[in-house]
Design a protein around this nucleic acid. Structure first.
Lengths: 137, 137, 137, 137
DNA sequence: TTTT
DNA sequence: TTTT
C-alpha cells in the first residue's frame, strides 16, 4: 500500500512531454505544500514536491493548471534511481498522481472571462490505466 | 494537507540518533514498498522510501523493529534541501511518520521465544509533539 | 490504522455544543462529497458524511465555517452504537476530524470586507488531544 | 476527494452475492479496527466498519479471506440511503474498497498446507472498473 | 452480531 | 434534511 494525498499550489506552469516510444502524454509540476508548523524564526515553510501525471490526466493538467493554482492530488510515492553522466547514483522522489482536483483559480491571475473551466471538476479520476515509468524523462 | 500511508518492509535495522542540541531521539529507516504492477520484464519492483520518526516513537521503533519486518506507516512527506561540501544544492525526500503499526515478525527470523512483543500494538500514535527537522542529521 | 481524507461542502452551518460533564466543545456538520462518477441517469450524486470535531478545532469551525463552504478534512472513521428509546440497536458512522483546511469562501456570500480570515489556514492540526466520545450528543 | 485507509480484522467470513440484473460479483464483510486510545474503563475498543468490494476483487476476497484475518483496505466512504418497509428513512455507511492487501493468516487457523496463497499479494488493485451501487443488496 |  |  502506497498512498499520498497533498493540497498545495503549483510553483510553475506544468510541463507536458510525450514518451519517445509510444507518445504517451506525461505532465510534471511541483507543488508547494505548506508545513503544518512554523520554523524556528516563526516563518511558514513549504515542501516542494514533484508530481507526475500520465495520459489524459496529463493533458487536462497541462491545459488547465497554471502557476499559483491550488490543487488536491492523490497518488503513490515513487523513487526512481538513475546514474549521472559523471557515474554517480542519484534518485528522484515524486508523486505519481491518479487524481487531481482543481480547487481555485490563482488570485493574481488576469484570466480572460471566456475561460470557463469548472473550478471544482474532477478530471479522469482513477479509471485510467496509469503506466509505470517506462521511460526516463 | 500532506498525508502519506505506506505498508512495506525495513531494508535494514533502524538507526537511532539524538539531536546535538537537545538530545531529542530520532530514528531513521528505509521501507521497501512493493509497486502495484510488474515492470517490463515481468518482475516486481519496490520503492525504497526513507522514514524518519521522533521522540518516543523513535525509541520504540529502534527497540522493536528489525530488518525485514513489515510495518504500516502514516505521516507527511518532507523535502529537505542542503548544500554538499562541493557547493551543490541537493535534496532528500522522506516521510516524517507520526504513526507506525507493527504488522508481523520477519519470516526468516530466529527470534528467541522470550521476546514477547505484541505484534500488532500501536506505538505512540500521534499524541506526541513531533517537531520539525530542527537539526541536520 | 484508520484514516479518512475528504473534500466537500457543508450542507448547513456547523452546530457547536459542549459536553455536559466537562464543557468540552464539540462541533458537528455534514459534508456533501461528490461521487467520482455519474449515476445511471447521468446525474452527479454526493455522499453526505457527518463530521465531528473537538475542542479548539470545534470552536474554529463553528466561528468560521458556513453552509456551502468547501473544506478538506482528515481524521478517523468512527461507528457509535446506541439504543433507541424503542429499544432498537442503531449506529451512527461519522468522521472524527483532527484537521480541517478551509478551501474557499462560498461564491454567493455577501460577506463584509472586514472579515479577514485567511482562507487557507490550518486550524489546530492534530496536536490537540482529541478525546473519544465520552458523552452521547 | 474521498479516501479511506483501514487496517483491521474480519469479524466473520465475507459474503459473496451477485447483482440480479448483471450478475456482477459483490462481496461484503465487516472489519474490526482498533481505536487508538483506551476507553474510560481502560479497555481497548474497536470500530466495526462495513466493507464492500466489487467484481474480481470481490471473488478474491470471498475465496481467500476468513474471519479473524488481518487486512489493509483502501477505498472511498459511501452513504446509501433507503426506506424501511415501515416507511422510515435509514442510511448505511460503508467503505467501497478498490484495494485489499492481505496481511497475515489467522493464528488459530488449521489451514491445509496446500493452500498456497501469497499472504502479501495485492489483488486487482485499482485497475478494475468499480461500479456504483446499481442495486440494493 | 462482532476481530486479535 | 442536504452542498456547489
Amino acid at each position: 500500500m502506497n498512498k499520498v494525498i497533498l493540497i498545495g499550489r503549483l510553483t510553475r506552469d506544468p510541463e507536458l512531454r510525450y514518451t519517445p516510444a509510444n507518445s504517451v502524454p506525461v505532465a510534471t509540476f511541483t507543488l508547494a505544500v505548506d508545513r503544518p508548523f512554523l520554523n524556528q524564526k516563526g516563518e511558514r515553510e513549504a515542501d516542494f514536491i514533484r508530481i507526475v501525471v500520465w495520459r489524459k490526466l496529463a493533458e487536462n493538467c497541462a491545459n488547465n493548471l497554471k502557476k499559483g493554482r491550488q490543487v488536491a492530488v492523490s497518488g503513490r510515492l515513487q523513487v526512481r534511481s538513475y546514474d549521472t553522466p559523471e557515474g554517480q547514483r542519484r534518485s528522484v522522489t515524486e508523486v505519481v498522481a491518479d487524481e487531481v482536483k482543481f480547487l481555485d483559480r490563482p488570485k493574481t491571475s488576469a484570466e480572460p472571462e471566456f475561460d470557463s473551466i469548472d473550478v471544482n471538476m474532477d478530471f479522469d479520476s482513477g479509471n485510467d490505466d496509469i503506466g509505470g515509468n517506462e521511460v526516463p524523462f
